[in-house]
Simulated scan of single mutants.
Amino acid sequence: MAAIVYFRKISETEELVEYEFGDAPENFERRLTMDKASCTSTVQDEQVEQVDYTFLKASRKLNALYTERGVWPERGMSVS
Rank of each mutant, 00 (worst) to 15 (best):
Y6T: 05
R69F: 07
R60M: 09
D45I: 08
S11N: 04
T67F: 06
Y53S: 07
K36R: 01
R31C: 01
S11P: 02
C39D: 05
K57T: 06
L65N: 03
A64D: 10
S59K: 08
F7N: 02
F21A: 03
A64P: 03
F21E: 01
M34W: 12
A37S: 14
R60G: 07
R60L: 11
L16C: 07
A64R: 07
Y19N: 06
M77K: 13
P25T: 03
R60H: 08
A64F: 07
V79E: 05
A24P: 01
S41N: 05
N63P: 02
K57F: 11
S38L: 14
F7T: 08
V17Q: 00
D45G: 02
A3T: 15
R75E: 13
N27M: 05
T33V: 15
V17N: 00
D52I: 00
L62T: 03
T54E: 14
N63W: 03
S78Q: 10
T13G: 00
Y19A: 01
D45Q: 02
R8W: 09
Q44A: 15
E26I: 08
F55S: 01
E12D: 05
V43P: 05
V79G: 04
E68N: 06
E14M: 14
F7M: 00
V5E: 00
K36S: 03
E15L: 15
E14Q: 15
K61N: 09
E18P: 03
Q50V: 14
M34F: 15
V79C: 04
G22E: 03
Y66S: 03
E18V: 13
W72P: 09
S38E: 15
E20V: 11
E46L: 06
S38P: 05
L16Q: 14
A37R: 00
T54F: 13
D23R: 11
D45E: 02
Q47V: 05
Y66P: 04
V48M: 13
A64M: 09
S38R: 11
G22L: 02
L16D: 14
T54R: 10
A64I: 08
S80T: 11
E46S: 10
E14D: 15
V79R: 14
D45T: 02
F7L: 00
T13S: 00
M34P: 08
L56I: 07
E18N: 06
A2N: 10
S41T: 12
Q50I: 13
V71K: 13
